[in-house]
């Protein structure tokens, strides 16, 4: 079978010839498509640094085989902001100093976007903390992360209400 996959990456459809069936989505993005915003921290689904959205759901890109994701819609941190206008989660991360070294940050942000989309946590700090626990931050920016997610969730809910009105 041909090792070709069609993916929509950050809203752009692309057909990618895979040189190897072993390539994960993470290594496809980082090593072949120059989308290095997504980070590799453990490569085993244990740290969350590689979190991306696949078909709107947050997953660990390191444990996803690219060949198996033919047809998938992928959103990475590079595709999050609308031009120079930051996504509310990105803006909130800056405002709340929700990172230090920044390495886990793209994964945290994509995870937060996924979390808000899931609609299970709302702005309950304990549910946000639990929901963000798949993203390790060794610098220890958790307080800012939780505050940023809550603020972004509220801002997005507000925007959604305004748009509905």
């Amino acid at each position: 079978m041909s090792l070709s996959v069609t993916l929509t990456i950050n809203r752009v459809p692309r057909t990618v010839q895979l040189d190897d069936p072993r390539v994960t989505l993470l290594d496809l993005l980082r090593e072949r498509l120059d989308l290095t915003g997504t980070k590799k921290g453990c490569d085993r689904g244990q740290c969350g640094a590689c979190t991306i959205l696949v078909d709107g759901r947050r997953v660990n890109a390191c444990l996803a085989l690219a060949i198996s994701h033919d047809g998938a819609d992928i959103l990475t941190v590079e595709g999050l902001s609308d031009g120079e206008r930051l996504h509310p989660v990105q803006a909130a991360f800056i405002a709340h100093d929700a990172f230090q070294c920044g390495f886990c940050t793209p994964g945290q942000i994509m995870s937060a976007v996924g979390l808000i989309g899931e609609g299970q946590a709302g702005d309950d700090p304990e549910r946000v903390r639990e929901g963000m626990s798949g993203n390790l931050c060794r610098c220890g920016a958790y307080r800012g992360i939780t505050e940023a997610v809550i603020e972004a969730a509220r801002a997005m809910a507000e925007t959604a209400r305004e748009e509905a009105a």
Partner: peptide
């Protein structure tokens, strides 16, 4: 002040060592 490198870090544009890929590079 908020971090001057904040924008780079939240957009994935902050380039860490392993994000580099010079032409002809091997692994």
């Amino acid at each position: 002040l908020t971090r001057r490198d904040g924008l780079l870090k939240v957009t994935g544009r902050a380039r860490y060592a392993a994000d580099n890929h010079p032409p002809g590079m091997l692994h």
